[in-house]
Amino acid sequence: MNSPTGPPLTENPIAVPEQHLIVAVDGGGSKTRALAGIVEFLDTELTGRASHEARQTCGKPVCVTILGSANSGPGNARSVGFDTAQANIRDAIQSSLQSTRTALQTPENEQRFPAISREQPISAITLSLAGVGREPDRLRIEQWGYENLSSQSVLVTTDAAPLLAYLNFERDSRLQNGDTDLDGATLAFEISSSMNAISLISGTGSFCFGVADDGRNETCGGWGGLLGDEGGGYWIAMEGLKKITRHADGRGPTTLLTQHVLNYLGLRNATELIGYIYDPNTTRDQIAKIAGIVFALSAEDPIAHQIVSDSGRWLAELIQTVATKLRFSERGISPILGLAGGNFCNQPILFEATLQAIATTNMGIAEAVRIHEPALGGFVLASQKIFDRKA
């Protein structure tokens, strides 16, 4: 398939230097995150020599050194509109590149990355975004990328794709500990087109995506707040709000959620929730933040605890459904599980509730990984594309 304004994917291959300037973007309903870095192929059969520092610090065939990072507003075009999402994406990319260009001027980096000059074009940009599951939306963003971003290649994927790619990274302690200040860090990964893995996102919404080593892939969830998204922040918040209204009516038990949520929103009583929820200026993202109160009270409030437990079961159901579609149990396969999104990364109780729910099924998990920096997976995706075009 040809890209709208860029070169065809199977023609005019990119001239592959030893080192590549790549930008990886992760855009969701709350924010857009951009990482810029230098990717080096360490296998001499692929690209020739790599820097001495890369060979010393990386134990896998490819590594990336992060030189710039930046955040901006939401990157989900379906939530905030294409113009706003594209502006946020561009702002994050430009800010990360500005930091990278500055870092490349140091004597150490000039010596380490001789193939990358301050004016060298970007080899590839990966845009991994919520809201591009439909092909027309993906193509629209791709065309905009080729027209507005100075990159030799633009790859647009859903925000689930980099999560699976992330699992190719070496289990570095900085990643496992949730360190997102990675500027200057060198991280190793492999390019692998074959794996059995499932990724699950619990952010504002929820979505599950899996791949099998025979090339098949399956999804589950991602229906949005009106149709589903069980176990996502918006759903958790709305469950809490419904418990408050039931208590206000006398149809449900007392819950600490009532006073804490009303105080958080600056409301005098539960009736005023109607004005807040149905106000057209109230966004799903704002409502989803109430989930933080549910998590905070889950240890002392039975209602909040039940909501978190239910969330874990719903999220486990997404995982098990994808695993069933991919016939993992039938084939005796225990996949790697990658869990991402603000709820998994910031709320250990949801991570544990989900794993506990999975444990009650007959599904095996080889490893469960919390993904604190999903944008990193974009470097794997871009490297795979560069390698494929070189082959």
Rank of each mutant, 00 (worst) to 15 (best):
M1W: 01
N2W: 04
N2K: 05
P4Q: 09
T5Q: 05
T5K: 05
T5H: 04
P8I: 07
L9A: 07
T10M: 07
I14D: 05
P17C: 04
V23F: 05
A24S: 13
G28V: 01
T32F: 00
I38D: 02
V39F: 09
D43V: 11
D43I: 12
E45D: 11
T47L: 14
A50G: 12
I66T: 02
L67R: 15
L67M: 12
L67W: 14
A70N: 01
S72W: 08
P74S: 13
G75S: 11
F82V: 12
A87N: 10
I89W: 15
R90M: 12
A92Q: 04
I93Q: 12
S95P: 06
S95W: 11
S95I: 13
T100K: 11
A103Y: 02
L104D: 14
P107N: 13
R112C: 04
I116Y: 03
S117R: 15
R118T: 11
P121Y: 01
R134T: 04
L139F: 00
G145S: 09
E147T: 02
N148K: 11
S151P: 08
T157C: 01
T157H: 01
T158Y: 00
L163K: 00
L164H: 05
L164Y: 01
N168F: 00
E170H: 07
E170V: 01
R171E: 08
L175P: 15
T180S: 11
D183K: 12
L187W: 09
A188W: 02
N196L: 05
A197V: 10
A197F: 06
S199P: 07
T204A: 10
D214H: 10
D214S: 10
R216H: 01
T219Y: 08
W223R: 08
G224S: 07
G225V: 08
D229V: 05
D229A: 06
D229Q: 09
E230N: 10
E230V: 09
G232Y: 07
G233L: 09
W235E: 06
G240M: 00
I244G: 09
R246L: 13
H247V: 07
T254N: 10
L256K: 14
L257W: 10
Q259Y: 15
T282Q: 15
T283Q: 03
A288N: 04
G292T: 14
F295G: 00
A296I: 14
I307W: 10
V308H: 10
D310N: 13
S311L: 11
G312K: 07
L315M: 00
E317T: 15
K325C: 14
A340N: 06
G342C: 11
G342S: 14
G342V: 15
F344V: 03
Q347P: 08
F351W: 14
A353R: 06
A353G: 04
T354W: 07
A357S: 04
T360S: 14
N362I: 02
V369D: 07
V369Q: 12
R370V: 15
P374M: 10
L376Y: 15
L376F: 13
V380L: 08
V380A: 09
L381H: 00
Q384A: 06
D388P: 02
D388R: 07
R389Y: 00
K390W: 08
K390T: 06
